[in-house]
Simulated assay, not measured.
Amino acid sequence: MKLPERIRGLRQERLSSLRPLGEFFDHQRISRPQDTNEAFQRITYNTRHFSGNYAVVIACLAVYGLLTSPILLVAIFFLVGGFWAINRFAPEPMQVGEHVVTQKSLYTGLFVIGLPLLWWASPVALFFWLVGSSAFLVLGHAAFIEPPVSSEYTGVETV
């Protein structure tokens, strides 16, 4: 299975499991769990029940994080654009003055400029911010939203 097909399948699977916003933001079902066991049960149920919604929340946080880090965007566009331009316009060695410029030398130049720029943009900080903020939002929501009464009977079979 090719990557675009996997992405389409994953997107269709996640979007089909989206719950309505009225159910996701139901303020009447918000309550503090009585103990850690109840919080863990709520988190277990709600992360499965609202998995599509949580994926959208995490994607929105990732987009927000990228948009608020312009240096990281420049670094990513520089590296991706550089790869694209080298593959598109310089597949064969070319003569520039007395020097022969090869793809290898172009990639070396791209890495010499692009990797320090990427390091300076600190993608690791964005990654840890994304992990922390999404864990806080997802686990907080999942712990404080009461599962419906029907969730207690999901494992019970009728005869």
Rank of each mutant, 00 (worst) to 15 (best):
G65K: 00
G82N: 02
W119L: 05
P123K: 00
P20C: 08
L73Q: 06
E23Y: 00
N87F: 08
E5C: 04
E23W: 12
L61H: 01
K104P: 01
I113R: 03
R42M: 03
S122Q: 14
S134L: 04
A39T: 09
L137K: 10
L139F: 14
A59W: 06
L130M: 05
R6F: 10
L61G: 07
S150E: 14
S16V: 02
Q28R: 09
I76M: 11
R19Y: 09
F40I: 14
L66V: 03
L67R: 04
F144W: 15
V96A: 15
F128V: 06
S122E: 05
L139C: 13
L3M: 09
A59S: 12
E13W: 15
Q103R: 11
L126R: 01
S134K: 10
A143W: 03
F25H: 10
A55W: 00
P93V: 00
G132V: 01
R42P: 11
L67I: 01
K104S: 13
S151N: 10
Q41H: 14
V156S: 11
A142Q: 03
H49M: 09
S51H: 12
G82H: 03
V112D: 01
I30Q: 06
E157P: 12
L118D: 01
V74S: 01
L139M: 12
C60V: 07
S16Q: 14
G9T: 07
T36H: 14
W120L: 05
A59H: 08
H49P: 06
T68A: 05
M1K: 08
S69W: 00
G97P: 09
A55L: 08
R8C: 03
F136C: 04
F136H: 03
Q12C: 04
R14G: 10
G155W: 12
L139T: 13
R88S: 10
V63F: 07
L18Q: 06
L73N: 05
F25S: 12
P116F: 00
P4G: 06
S150N: 07
V101Q: 04
W84P: 11
A62E: 02
I30F: 13
S69V: 00
I86D: 03
A55Y: 02
H141A: 05
I76C: 06
F77I: 05
G9W: 07
S69Y: 00
F25M: 08
V124H: 02
V80M: 09
T154E: 15
I43Y: 13
R8T: 08
P147Q: 12
F83Y: 14
V100T: 14
P147W: 02
E38G: 10
G109A: 04
V57S: 07
